[in-house]
């Protein structure tokens, strides 16, 4: 039985290959003009910023996780790996990527050099990294005013108010993953007059007790999709602290906030009313 299904699967694979041959073996695809700006984005956050800067039509290839661009764009690489042949086929002028901790893949570097493709590699941890990315891709954007506006928006983010309410920002319930101090979300929190209750670097996997020990004034959950909201809310409610007991919990669906991009600023600003509402009702309830 197993053998039969196995051979069926391989037959399907062979058939698929043949069908593909029929479809596309006819003509050599035309090479697009190399003078145009053609961007291969290996980073979903960078894709979001590029779309926000009005460069959507210049993006010719994407990473598996880029949701802000057309799904039909070919996937040619991610933060670590890349597909040389597919990249050649879409002939990008630029590759933008967030390199992994271990640095840019040397093979990609030499490949890009050999092919004359410009590499824009920025590790996006803080909003200032986003700013740096915007400045480095500014020449690629046709709408200079829009770029200027986005840079101004980043510059206009207020500094941390040490008297602001302290918040724990949870982005995943299982495992419990919270935004640490050195994080673009921490940079964005002053927009809604909050500050991060955690100070360790990066994303922090932590226990209920560890979060409770921080005694935050507010618990904020950010979900990628509607389906994750309930889980995040449950996780936040189970943190044994005053905020959860008095219902100071806000859970929102905001994929823009899960990727450090120029869009994250407006997405954070949009939370203001929800946060205010929760803080107001709970302070009215308080004796």
């Amino acid at each position: 039985m197993l053998l039969r299904s196995f051979s069926f699967a391989s037959a399907c694979a062979v058939f698929g290959v043949l069908a593909a041959c029929d479809r596309g073996g006819t003509a050599d695809p035309e090479r697009p003009s190399t003078t145009a700006i053609r961007i291969a984005s290996f980073s979903p956050a960078m894709s979001a910023t590029l779309v926000d800067l009005g460069c959507e039509s210049n993006i010719v290839a994407r990473s598996p996780w880029c949701t802000d661009v057309a799904k039909s764009l070919p996937v040619v690489g991610d933060f670590r790996d890349f597909d040389a042949e597919r990249i050649l086929l879409v002939s990008p002028s630029h590759i933008v990527l967030q390199p992994p901790l271990s640095g840019i893949n040397p093979a990609l570097e030499s490949f890009a050099k050999a092919q004359g493709i410009a590499l824009v590699a920025v590790q996006l941890d803080r909003m200032r990294d986003v700013r740096q990315f915007v400045s480095s891709v500014a020449p690629l954007a046709s709408d200079a005013a829009r770029v200027r506006a986005r840079l101004d928006a980043i510059d206009a983010i207020p500094l941390v108010d040490v008297h602001a309410p302290r918040v724990v920002v949870l982005v995943s319930a299982e495992p419990m993953l919270a935004a640490g101090g050195a994080n673009y979300l921490t940079d964005l929190l002053p927009i809604v007059h909050l500050r991060n209750a955690l100070d360790a670097e990066g994303w922090i996997e932590c226990s209920h007790e560890a979060l409770a020990a921080r005694d935050p004034d507010l618990l904020l959950g950010i979900a990628e999709r509607e389906e994750s909201v309930a889980g995040l809310r449950r996780a936040l409610e189970s943190i044994p602290c005053r905020a959860s007991r008095s219902g100071r919990i806000v859970v929102v669906v905001s994929p823009e906030l899960l990727r450090p991009s120029t869009r994250s600023i407006d997405a954070m600003r949009a939370l203001q009313s929800a946060i205010d509402a929760v803080l107001r009702t709970t302070s009215e309830q308080a004796p």
Partner: peptide, 12 residues
């Protein structure tokens, strides 16, 4: 991989 007329990528 190769591109079709509409710019979609196929394998064959």
């Amino acid at each position: 991989p190769h591109l079709d007329g509409a710019g979609a990528m196929h394998f064959g």
